[in-house]
Design a protein around this nucleic acid. Structure first.
Lengths: 130, 130
DNA sequence: CTGTATCCCCCTCGATACTG
DNA sequence: CAGTATCGAGGGGGATACAG
């Protein structure tokens, strides 16, 4: 198992890990994957589902993900323009690592929050009167 | 299974997932965890092992991780100052999600790179004369 | 509807220099 | 050795306005 966790790897900018980190480390990308897990979505649907994302940033994210083969962009030449984004099998496979992260988060968020509170109280006990 | 992947969760800025994403999405944090998996390390050792990280940024990273209860900072009052950083059980548990990401990366980096090449060639065929 | 273009601000990172 | 202080550059993100 340790073989797959060679620190030396990730330290290399060309390491595949860095490549993925840039992707799943980006909140918008993760959100897009999550949104698309259910099935194809249109640009505006994505915008609405994710919320708080500007068209520029969403387009940016989508483009990069498309380039990486994570999703497909299908344009329908209709009177009201329609574009559907769908996860590729590759994109769908991102579900595993994302799930691992999510699982860790849900399992340990309490500990992290507690640690923070403990730390902050030491730093400024006066402010921790709540 | 789907229950742990509720999109609605991650869309919430207060969601635990966001919290973790900010941590494992940060390359330096990941690198620190990886470095510390073997055992405690000193500041300079980390600096050297990770490489390319400035003292300021490393300190920053370390401080945040300490606050989050991911690692401990032990100061030895010796003539040549010595400070050792060690992963807490919580920090060590980050190994799982990181491993998931690493596994995905190693398994699919080829597909991603291929997708990129394909995409880039379509975008600028002239440049892809190799 | 589906984007694109612009401007702007913030924030992080990096380099350098200095202190305990 | 282990950090901290400062400065500057850069990218990303967001808001807005506009185009096909």
């Amino acid at each position: 198992m340790e073989d797959s966790l060679r620190p030396g790897d990730a330290f290399d900018p060309n390491c595949p890990t860095r490549l993925v980190l840039d992707r799943i480390g980006d909140k918008w990308s993760v959100l897009v994957v999550l949104s698309l897990l259910d099935g194809p979505r249109r640009f505006t649907e994505l915008r609405h589902t994710i919320g708080g994302v500007t068209p520029k940033v969403l387009t940016q994210t989508l483009r990069v993900m498309e380039r990486d083969g994570l999703l497909t962009r299908e344009v329908f030449a209709e009177v009201p323009p329609r574009v559907e984004y769908a996860l590729t099998p590759l994109g769908r496979s991102l579900r595993a690592p994302i799930e691992a992260v999510t699982a860790w988060a849900e399992a340990n968020v309490g500990a992290v929050v507690a640690a923070r509170a403990r730390h902050d109280e030491r730093a400024s006990p006066a402010a921790a009167t709540g």
